[in-house]
Design a protein around this nucleic acid. Structure first.
Lengths: 194, 194
DNA sequence: ACCTGAACACCGTTCAAGT
DNA sequence: ACCTGAACACCGTTCAAGT
């Protein structure tokens, strides 16, 4: 809690402050608490003040989504064979998404993955597929299939809270194993070589 | 438009009328138009009148979601081999979901598939997997993988309208082909026999 | 440029009261 | 039992005005 400002004193809001405030709210009270009005109260400004730094709530959420993908661990091109690398990349993405379960449904409900981080991961996947012997149209199809599968599974774990206000449950071990099985089936079917 | 009622005259609302009214709104103006207040206006009653027939908006949407699955075509156990049957069942599910694109994100955001129709389809899938040589724990995992993949792909097609109020776009042929490729890879990886 | 006050046009849901 | 009037506690966003 910052000290209360006297009238006439600047709030000193920045785009970055708005972003971190939104992430604080998300971490402490879940997606449902991330409202423009709630965020404004958290930052001790009036709701409309936010619009000097963010064009809309949607734009704010999009930014939060793409920022999340920066945490995905990319495989070492030297150390790992392409199939293992692909498996690890998708697995890391899945786990990152699981840490912010309640944000995932927005991925599918909205734009999916169009931010810079998302695009970067896509390029890495394409190169891994190529090294695994999959190129051209099949590679583009495999890319989409792997993305949809991974985000879909994360969204599935993120079943809406039974009671609104519930915090995310601990990651379900059975579901994680299930994700791995499916990923294995997919990579086998696609024919990615080791 | 029903004729205007005189004061004291009953509205004659029923649970079924509320459901069909909601589906009309969905078909004509999209999910975003399905609000309790908007639905009330469509049915020419006050908003709170709906709560005599439906416990909440969430319950209403759940019912709408499960009703949708009744339209899925189930394969003929006699005519088709299990792998083809499974492919057709998932494909039919995918196309049914595509006809109501904007409803799909709710599937993943909320309960997924818990209604009677969803459960019935799950049982058919399990028996098809068994006939295809997949039983026990692998069958349960395959079931979830196939469901997540199918709903995920439908949700992916259902990218939020770029401009709020946009109506669903015509089914994208490229995406449909992509769904088929992935489904093929999955069934191959799972090892469902013909 | 950045922020406030006030307002617009909405939401879901509840409660007391009427028939 | 079914429905209305009125209210509660919210939303996202815009606009004019102040510093």
């Amino acid at each position: 809690m910052p000290p209360p400002r006297r009238p006439g004193q600047r709030a000193g809001l920045t785009r970055a402050r708005v972003l971190t405030g939104a992430n604080e709210l998300l971490a402490e009270h879940g997606v449902e608490s991330v409202t423009m009005r709630g965020l404004a109260k958290h930052l001790e400004v009036t709701p409309n003040a936010l619009y000097s730094h963010v064009t809309s709530k949607t734009a704010l959420l999009d930014e939060m989504l793409d920022d999340l993908l920066a945490k995905v661990q990319t495989p070492d091109p030297q150390a790992d064979d392409p199939r293992t690398g692909l498996h690890q990349l998708m697995s890391s993405t899945y786990h990152v998404l699981l840490t912010h379960q309640d944000l995932v449904p927005l991925y599918l409900a909205r734009q999916g993955a169009r931010g810079h981080n998302a695009q970067h991961l896509g390029e890495i996947m394409i190169s891994l597929l190529a090294r695994g012997g999959v190129t051209g149209q099949p590679a583009r199809e495999a890319l989409r299939v792997l993305i949809v599968y991974t985000i879909g599974f994360a969204a599935f774990a993120a079943r809406g809270p039974l009671v609104p206000g519930d915090r995310p449950q601990p990651p379900n071990q059975e579901l994680i194993a299930n994700f791995d099985s499916g990923l294995h089936w997919l990579l086998t079917g696609i024919g990615v070589t080791k």
